[in-house]
């Protein structure tokens, strides 16, 4: 069930656009913000609320890179793997994350703390390599900084 607060926030987004459907991406963002990811049941609840079939909403949800249709950890690491970070050697950062976290792309640590995902260009190419954890951007990365960065997230 959508919570009263979720419904309230989604209704606000609906008020800004001509149809209920048009607010579906905002609705998915609101629910994901609260629940971490979009489960099948969350999807069905949102679909009903914005007058869409679950299949139609799923076609939207699965199109976008940042709507998670599988569970993720408490923190999501998005590592840029695009061209400037490639040239600047981001693979050292990737391999270090693989080794210290014991996971590869698309996986979540056993304690549910981190999910590691590759991400297209973060738009900070003059400060490559770069990654984001949740809402935080880290640039000019070196392997030496990683431990301190990761320790901020519990």
């Amino acid at each position: 069930m959508l919570t009263a607060e979720e419904k309230h926030q989604i209704e606000h987004e609906i008020s800004l656009v001509p149809t209920r459907k048009a607010a579906c991406i905002e609705a998915l963002k609101i629910v994901q913000q609260n629940r971490g990811w979009i489960s099948d049941s969350s999807l069905a609840e949102v679909a009903e609320f914005v007058d869409m079939s679950p299949a139609e909403l799923d076609s939207v949800a699965t199109f976008y890179n940042l709507i998670f249709r599988r569970p993720v950890g408490r923190h999501v690491i998005l590592l840029c793997d695009s061209i400037s970070c490639y040239v600047m050697g981001y693979e050292i950062i990737r391999d270090h994350l693989y080794n210290t976290l014991g996971i590869k792309y698309g996986e979540t640590t056993g304690d549910g703390r981190f999910t590691l995902l590759p991400n297209a260009c973060l738009g900070t190419c003059d400060c490559a390599p770069a990654l984001m954890i949740d809402n935080d951007l880290y640039r000019n990365l070196t392997v030496e900084q990683l431990e301190e960065i990761l320790n901020k997230y519990t």
Binding site: S82, I83, S84, A120, C121, G123, T124, C125, D126
Partner: peptide, 11 residues
């Protein structure tokens, strides 16, 4: 929606 790889001017 700046997302062209290598582009960071609108930011």
């Amino acid at each position: 929606d700046e997302m062209e790889p290598g582009t960071f001017k609108d930011r």
